[in-house]
Design a protein around this nucleic acid. Structure first.
Lengths: 205, 205, 205, 205
DNA sequence: TATGAATGAGAGTTCATTCAT
DNA sequence: CATGAATGAACTCTCATTCAT
C-alpha cells in the first residue's frame, strides 16, 4: 500500500542503499577504492556480502553512487547559497565558503572526490568523461557568475571557464591542506585568504 | 675497479634501476598503481620478474622511487631557473613556467604525481608524511620568494606558506586541465593567466 | 470440496507444478542444468523464487521431475503405437518412428534427456540408477518385441537386451544428428535408414 | 642447452601440462566439469592453484585440452589399425574394435567425452562447433571406408555420412552400456555383436 | 499459500613476492 | 647477478536455499 508515494518496499530499498552507501563512503575514504573490499563494506553495513549485490551491480557502482551523490548534493548546496546572495562579491565568496564547509562536513566524501581526481588519467575514457562532466558542472555555476561580472565590468576581461576551474582548484587545494593538517589557520581565515587572492586577482582595476 | 668514484658494479646497478624506473613510470602513468603489474614492468624493462626485486624491495618502492626522482628533478630545475631570474616578479613567473613546462615534458610523471595526491588520504601516515615532505619542499622554494617579497613590501602581508601552496595548486590545476583537454589556450596563454591572477592577487596595493 | 476426486487445492498444486515444469524444461534445455538458475525458472513460471520451493524440494528435483515426466510420456506413446501395429516389422518400425517423432516434437525435453545421458557417470550412484531404470524401461518395450521375434525365428538369435539398447542408441543418435543439423535427410528418410539398417542387421537369414 | 630438440624448460612445461591434464581428466570424469574445481585439480596434480594458470588459461582450457588430446589420440590409433587391415570387413571391424578398446583403456576420457556430448546443445555455438568438428573427424575415417565399399559394391547404396555416424553411435552406446554395467557380455562378444549388426545391415545383398 | 530479501559458501582468476637453479 | 616457476592469499561476484512477513 503506497504511502506518500512510496511503497514499503521502496522505503526499505532506499534505506538499504543509503546504509550501504554510508558504509562504503567511509571505507573508500579510509582505504581507497582498491583497499576497500566488498566484504568489509557489507560487514560495515551489517549485511551479508551477497546482499550488497542486491542493491548495487558492482563494487564500482557503489563507488560511483557515492561520488555522484556527494557531488550532486554539493552542487545543490552551493547553488542555493549562491542564489541567496545579492552581490557578485557575495556570490563568489559564498561559492568558496560553501564548498569548503561542505567538504569539512563531509570529509569522507572529499577523500573519495580527491582520489577520483588522482585517477582521472588512468581510468578508461568513458569513466573519465563521466567524472569530468560531474566536476565541470559545479565549475559552471561559478563560470556563469564570472561571465556576468565580466559583462558588468566588475571583473576584468579574463577567460571565464579557465578562471572558474582555477578558483575551484584553489578551493580544493585549501581543503586538502586543511585535511592534511598543513593549514594552521581557521576556516574563516582560509576562506578570507582564498577570496582575497581571487578577488584581487580578477577584479577590474 | 673504481672509475670516477664508482665501481663497475655500481654503474650497472644504477643503470638497471634507471631502466626499471623508466619502464615503471610509463606503466604507472598509464594504468595507475594497481593496474600496473610487476610482470609488465619487468617486461617493459627487459628483465625477468625476479630481477626487479634485486633492485627494489617492492612494487611500492619502485613507485616511490619514480615519484621522488621526478619531484627532485623538478625542484632542481625550478630552483635553477628561479635563481637565474633577477626580479621577484620574474622569479615567480619562472616558478610557474618551469613547473608547467616540466610537467608538459614529463606527462607520465605528472600522472603519477597527481595520482599520489589523490591517494594522500588513504595511505598510512608515514607514507603520507613522506610525500608531504617532498611536496612541501618545492612549495618552500616559492614560500621563500614570497616571504622576501613581503619583507620588501612588494607583496602584501599574507600567509606566505599558504600562498605558496595555493600557487602550487593553481599551477597543478592548470596542468591537469591541459592534460585532460579542458584548457583550450596555449601554454603561453595559460602561464600568463595564472601569473596575472596570482600577481594581482598578492601584490602590494 | 472434492471434484472429480480432486480437491481444489490439489488441482491448484498440480497446475503450479506443471507450470514450473514447463518453464524449467525450457530453461534446462537452453542452458543446461547449471546454466539455468532457480531465479529464472521462477520468473519464467511467473512466480516468486520462494514459491518454487513450495512445490519442489530442490533445483535437482525439478530437473528430475522434468526428466521422468518426459520419459514416461514417451514410453506411453511408444507403447500405444507399438501395440497398434500388427506385424513384428511394423512394431519395430513404429518404435523407431514414434521415438523420433516424440523427440522432434519435444526438443526441449530431448536436450535434457541427452544431457542427463552425458552426466550419467558423474552423478551419485543412486541418481544414476534412477535414470538407468527409467531409460531401460523404454528399451524393454523393444526388448520384448525382439524376444518374441527370436522365438518366432523372424529374428536371428541375438542378445535381445543388448540389441534393444543398440537400437535405442541408433535412434537417439539420429535425433542428435538432426538437432545438430548434421543430418541432411528428412524425417522419413532417416527413419527408413535406421529401420533398414536394423532390420537387415537382425532379421533371420 | 637443447637436447633432442627440446630445452629443459620445454620438457618441464610439457611434464607439468601432462601432470595437470591427468589430474584434471580424473576429476572431470569423476565429477563433471562443474563438480571439478580448479582447487581440487591443482591439489590432485600436487601444485598450488596459481600454478594451474601458468599452464592453462582457464578451467575450460584444461577441459578442452583433455578432450582434444583424447580424441586426437583415439583417431590416430583408429587410423593406424584401420590402415593395417587389408579387407574392407577387417577395416570396419578394426574401427569398432579399436574405439571400444581405447575407451575401455581410457575410461576417464570416455566419461568426459560422453559428457561433452550431453552438453552439445547447451554450449555456445562456437564451442559446439569445435567439438562437432573433432567428433566428425573420427567419423570421417569410417565414412571414407564406407564410400569405398559402396563404390566397390561390397556395401549397398546408403548414405555414407549418416551410416558412419550411426556406427559411431552404436560403438559409443555399447561402451556406455559396458561402463554402466548394463552389458553382461565380454568385449569380444560385444564387438562381434556390433559388427554383425552393422555388417549385415549395410552389406550388399 | 506466496513472497522475495537475505544469506554465505564457494567459484574462477590475478598477482606481489619468494627462492632454487 | 639473473631467472621465472611456483606460491597462495585475496579478490569480486553468483546463486541455491531459507524464513520472516
Amino acid at each position: 500500500m503506497p504511502v506518500l508515494g512510496k511503497t514499503r518496499k521502496e522505503v526499505l530499498t532506499e534505506f538499504r542503499m543509503e546504509e550501504l552507501l554510508e558504509a562504503a563512503r567511509k571505507l573508500f575514504a579510509e582505504k581507497g577504492f582498491h583497499g576497500a573490499t566488498v566484504d568489509k563494506i557489507a560487514d560495515a553495513a551489517g549485511v551479508a556480502k551477497g546482499t550488497v549485490y542486491l542493491y548495487y551491480r558492482s563494487k564500482r557502482a557503489i563507488y560511483w553512487a557515492a561520488l555522484e551523490r556527494g557531488i550532486a548534493a554539493m552542487i545543490e548546496e552551493v547553488q542555493t547559497q549562491v542564489d541567496a546572495e545579492e552581490t557578485l562579491e557575495g556570490k563568489i565568496r559564498a561559492f568558496i565558503t560553501i564548498k569548503l564547509c561542505y567538504f569539512e562536513r563531509n570529509r569522507d566524501f572529499f577523500k573519495i572526490y580527491i582520489s577520483e581526481f588522482g585517477s582521472a588519467f588512468t581510468h578508461p575514457v568513458q569513466i573519465r568523461k563521466r567524472f569530468g562532466d560531474l566536476y565541470l558542472r559545479q565549475a559552471r555555476v561559478l563560470e556563469a557568475l564570472l561571465r556576468e561580472g565580466i559583462k558588468r565590468k566588475a571583473i576584468r576581461s579574463i577567460r571565464a571557464d579557465t578562471a572558474a576551474l582555477a578558483i575551484s582548484d584553489l578551493t580544493r587545494g585549501i581543503i586538502t591542506q586543511r585535511l592534511l593538517g598543513w593549514s594552521k589557520g581557521g576556516v574563516e581565515s582560509d576562506i578570507r585568504f582564498i577570496f582575497d587572492l581571487v578577488w584581487k586577482g580578477i577584479a577590474a582595476p
